[in-house]
Amino acid sequence: MPSRWPHPLILLFCLLWSAGLASRVSISPTTLQLQPNVRATQLTLTNQGGEAVTFDLSLLAWSQPGGQDVLVGTQAVVVAPSTVTLEPGATQTVRLARLGAPTLSELAYRLLITERPSQAPGVTTRIQFSVPLFDGPAEAAGRTPGASPPLAETPFQVGLGADGRVTLSNPGAFHLRLNTLEVRGADGWQPVPLLYLLAGQGRSLDVAGIQELRYSQGGQTRNVVVH
Score class of each variant (00 low, 15 high):
R203L: 08
G50C: 05
F13T: 05
R214L: 01
T44G: 00
Y109C: 01
E87N: 12
E51W: 02
S3R: 06
G50Y: 09
C14A: 06
T114N: 08
L176W: 02
V226G: 00
R116N: 12
P36H: 09
G66H: 15
E182G: 05
T93C: 00
P150K: 14
Y196C: 11
V224C: 02
V183Y: 09
Q220D: 08
F55C: 02
G188M: 13
R203C: 09
R39Q: 03
S204G: 06
E115Y: 07
T103N: 10
T124Q: 13
Q42W: 12
G159S: 09
S18F: 04
Q33E: 08
G66M: 11
G188K: 15
A152K: 06
L178V: 08
T154G: 01
T74G: 03
D163E: 13
A147T: 12
L151F: 06
A140L: 05
E182N: 07
A19Q: 12
T91S: 10
D135E: 00
E182P: 01
S148G: 09
P8S: 11
N223R: 07
T31P: 02
L96V: 04
T85D: 15
P193K: 14
L15N: 14
T74D: 01
E212Q: 11
G49S: 05
S169M: 14
R184D: 00
R39D: 11
V25M: 01
Y215E: 04
H7M: 11
Q128L: 04
V53P: 10
G67D: 05
W189E: 04
S23G: 05
D206E: 12
G146I: 08
Q42N: 03
T180E: 07
G136V: 07
R24F: 11
D69S: 13
P81Q: 05
Q35V: 10
I27G: 00
E212Y: 00
A40L: 06
A61R: 15
W62A: 02
Y109I: 06
L176C: 12
N179C: 12
E182K: 11
N179E: 05
L133Q: 03
P102Q: 03
V70Q: 15
P150A: 15
G218A: 10
A199N: 04
A108T: 07
G161P: 01
S118C: 11
L194N: 13
E87F: 00
E87C: 03
T103E: 05
P81D: 02
V72L: 09
L112N: 02
V25S: 04
Q68N: 02
T167S: 09
D163L: 04
L111C: 06
Q128R: 13
N170H: 10
L11T: 15
